[in-house]
Design a protein around this nucleic acid. Structure first.
Lengths: 237, 237
DNA sequence: CGTTCAATTGAACTTGCTCAAACCTCGTGG
DNA sequence: CCACGAGGTTTGAGCAAGTTCAATTGAACG
């Protein structure tokens, strides 16, 4: 079990924990009743939870770092579900289930805040239209899954990778500002599993992008040099 | 707007509406407070709602028939999301959104019951652990999406079609009983869009199954002759 | 009975996979 | 400090699967 930060459970959170990029944006009451209970620090390779763990009734907010959410087949083959990073949450789809249905592994050093279901629900119920709020909260994840489904259904490899890179790079920088280097903490194998491609194909496509001058590649990161070209190829709908 | 059945809103549902196969199985109070407000009858080709319609705060329970849930690209290309049939619901992922993000089209004659969010939520809140219940309700859909994701990521065409047929055929009949004929109300194009294949490939695979004696094909339906072989090919994990 | 649209089938082609070899990176230990 | 080894990455050649395009068949409906 990973070490946890000092923070008195039950008390309102001592300092605003990155509210500007929080997944609960707009749901917390303005009077500072932050529902975070604990902060976990994970080192690279640590598991936040395993498949078939008993579900601790919490959702987790990712503050920094990047995780790999995956399932293990009985064949031992992994099925990547997602790579949640800062501003995302995990565990909401295990609400009401007895055991976790996936593993969550830290790809690099991570900070993760735990919010107990009880506090989340109490907070929502203090708001009018709690059902709508909760639904809206979940709908972002459903929409993300559907975007991935759309890509997997029938896109060539280059479009899949283009989409993935844009997703990793985040929103475009303000006009006139340079692209920030983006990290790629997962292996080519992981990317391939996520996109339905083989590691070889991922590598080939990335090399092709590099040769066209679209990206600068490093082993665990990249820099977008031609976001427009990549976005055009990805053909975002 | 489709015609609606006579049923006094606000009153408890006059007759138990197919509770044995209802998607709300286990959530309704035992004392008969069925939250259904109205029943819609749709003819083949009718839309229950369109993309970008203002969201009427209801979820819809499919009682009979089969619908096509899809989005329209700006290119005019359709993206199939799902084919909800009896016992499924629609619209839960639009909770909290201002506009519907997909179209729902009846593929044949359908009966659909509407449940207002308000009643659903009131019903859940009368139960202990309403959050868990609601989460459990949604998790079935998420699990379905993830199963589809797994298939799309890297299965050959035959496995995709095998999986689709098993999904359409429903659970195996009791030992010794014959397979019931299953309907296939959608076009080959729709099946292809759903599975990430071309209509040609779908047709080829179905023909191959027929030639192996695994299925009997009709234009808008089929009959499983060798469920075992197909299940083995689908290799359900 | 003819029209129309969907489904089937065939042939050539393209894409991404498989298999395999070479290479790079990084941690480990001499 | 350097050599070594292990694992991940890149790249190539051949191959198999599915697509594209087009022609044919079939079914439904006026």
């Amino acid at each position: 079990m990973p070490p946890l930060l000092r923070h008195r459970p039950g008390a309102p959170h001592p300092a605003a924990p990155d509210c500007h990029s929080c997944a609960l944006q707009g749901f917390c009451p303005a009077d500072g009743g932050c529902p975070v209970e604990r902060r976990y620090r994970l080192a690279k390779g640590d598991h936040l939870f395993h498949m078939d763990d008993a579900v601790r009734p919490c959702i987790y907010l990712v503050r920094s770092g990047c995780l790999k959410l995956y399932q293990l087949n009985q064949d031992g083959v992994q099925r990547i579900i997602d790579f949640p990073g800062p501003g995302r949450w995990l565990g909401a789809d295990d609400i009401g289930a007895p055991r976790r249905h996936a593993c969550a592994l830290a790809l690099n050093a991570c900070e993760v805040d735990a919010v107990p279901y009880g506090r989340l629900m109490a907070m929502l119920e203090r708001q009018p239209r709690s059902a709508e709020l909760f639904g809206h909260m979940l709908s972002r994840d459903i929409a993300r899954q559907q975007r991935l489904l759309a890509i997997l259904r029938s896109s060539p490899a280059e479009r899949r990778v283009a989409h993935f890179l844009l997703d990793r790079a985040g929103p475009a920088p303000a006009a006139g500002r340079a692209e920030a280097p983006a990290i790629l903490p997962m292996s080519r194998q992981d990317i391939g599993d996520y996109l339905g491609l083989t590691p070889s194909t991922v590598s080939r496509v990335l090399s092709a992008f590099r040769q066209r001058g679209w990206v600068a590649l490093r082993l665990r990161g990249f820099l977008l040099l031609a976001r427009d070209s990549i976005a055009q190829l990805a053909n975002l709908t």
